[in-house]
Simulated scan of single mutants.
Amino acid sequence: MKIVYKWKTVFVFLLIAGFAKTTSAQQKFEKAEFYKVMDEGNLTAINSQIEIVQASSSPNKEGYDGALLMRKADKVAVPGQKLKFFKAGRIKLETALLADNDNTEYHFLRLAIEEHAPKIVKYHFDIEKDKAFVLKNFKSLPESVQHAIRDYCKKSKVLHAEEL
């Protein structure tokens, strides 16, 4: 009797866990939420947003996924994992930029990552180029992205609101 009870408990737990994961993966990708997580997200929020991005049909998901992985690198504790996530994210974002170099959001995401990346990862070479690209194309961006950039300017040493 106790064995049956334990199996029922385990089954219910697995069912609930599976439902929770399915529900979070089925959430719709929204840029405002993505940028909120990029700005202030903790590891749980970043992981959840990665699931949402990967499940989305957004044509820009590789770039978003790459940026989130690099942001995740900042939140994990183990140095080996930090490097692993950063490298994987860098490859995805740079590949997305190669495929669509005119995508202003990608340049903004790279700028935000570059500005805060540790010197050891040597990811600072395109700051000025990305800044110029974002400034040139700012007005053509969706309002949610413009809002994210304006918020970023409040903390940035490179990009300033009066330049927009």
Rank of each mutant, 00 (worst) to 15 (best):
L98H: 14
G66K: 03
L68Q: 03
F108I: 05
L83H: 08
K82S: 07
G66Q: 05
K84L: 13
K92N: 08
K82P: 08
A117F: 12
K139D: 13
E114S: 07
A96M: 06
D102Q: 13
R90C: 00
E128V: 06
I113R: 08
A132G: 01
F85G: 00
T95R: 08
K131R: 09
T95V: 02
K61V: 09
K119G: 15
F86E: 09
S58T: 12
F133H: 10
V134H: 01
I127K: 09
D100T: 11
L109Y: 02
I127T: 09
H124N: 15
L97K: 15
R71L: 03
F138V: 03
T104F: 11
D126H: 11
V134F: 02
K82D: 07
N103R: 07
G89D: 08
A77Y: 13
T95A: 12
T104K: 06
A77V: 12
S58D: 15
A73L: 07
K129H: 01
K75W: 02
P79T: 07
E128W: 00
V76N: 05
E62L: 12
I120Q: 14
D100R: 14
L135E: 12
E115W: 05
K139R: 13
H124I: 12
A96P: 04
P118C: 04
K87L: 14
I113N: 05
L97Q: 13
L97S: 06
A77W: 15
K136C: 07
D102E: 12
K61Y: 01
A132F: 03
I113A: 09
D74C: 00
H116F: 10
D130V: 03
G80I: 14
